[in-house]
Nucleic acid binder design. Structure first.
Lengths: 113, 113
DNA sequence: ATATCAATTGTAGTTTATTTACAATTATAA
DNA sequence: TTATAATTGTAAATAAACTACAATTGATAT
């Protein structure tokens, strides 16, 4: 069980993956959601970007982007933004959890050789 | 065997992951490698950024970043840049392969409902 | 020591990306 | 048609990244 995560981690480096945060322009290209809309959603509390330093630019991680895609899906299906947010939020719990579980897997041992 | 990848894909969405490309500043923060050095390495052919549109900014995907980290490791161990590149290139074959295998896993079926 | 080459770093001036803050538009339901 | 939700437009300012120069550092050979 944890062995699988171990193997996966060797292949994928979740520690690195967690840090892969992209700018708003990139997110827009990836998802097809206009930057203006992304900012609007953020105002509304639908998503929250990582902004380490104040007065800097927005950064989004994998899960942020995933969430946006899910919200857009819901909206396309006819839900209101608020409803979509609530629905997606529930789904995200699972994803966050699974992701955290994978990310927290301690790599075999840092010092090789 | 493919079932594992299937399950993993539901959790991770490699299709999305492939598209998560970060800017040079972000890479620098993540890896600790100065932006100037990253550009230099790119000149030397050690790495190649994705630059969709000409006259735009550099973008790096997960594997690019991973490669930089590996190269830096080699250099820290005393290898020359050229030697490091060759060594890492060999390792990357495996990673690229594994990654591609995961990424190419066809999601269950696009149209649900 | 010094010449040589690899590796890295510095930076000015310019281009590209993002932000904020204002307002306008479109869509939907009462 | 009025009210509210959702989205979009944009100008001016700030941040991030680019290029193209050159300088510096470090190791190795002469």
């Amino acid at each position: 069980m944890n062995e699988d995560a171990q193997k996966l981690n060797a292949l994928l480096d979740f520690d690195l993956l967690k840090k892969l945060v992209v700018g708003i322009g990139e997110v827009s290209e990836i998802t097809g959601i206009p930057t203006r809309k992304i900012r609007y959603w953020e105002e509304k509390g639908a998503i929250q970007s990582e902004t380490n330093i104040e007065g800097s630019t927005r950064r989004y991680n994998y899960l942020n982007v995933k969430k946006m895609l899910l919200i857009q899906e819901m909206i396309d299906e006819g839900f209101t933004l608020d409803a979509a947010i609530k629905k997606v939020e529930k789904r995200m719990v699972t994803l966050n959890d699974a992701f955290r579980r994978l990310a927290d897997t301690v790599p075999d041992t840092e010092d090789k050789e």
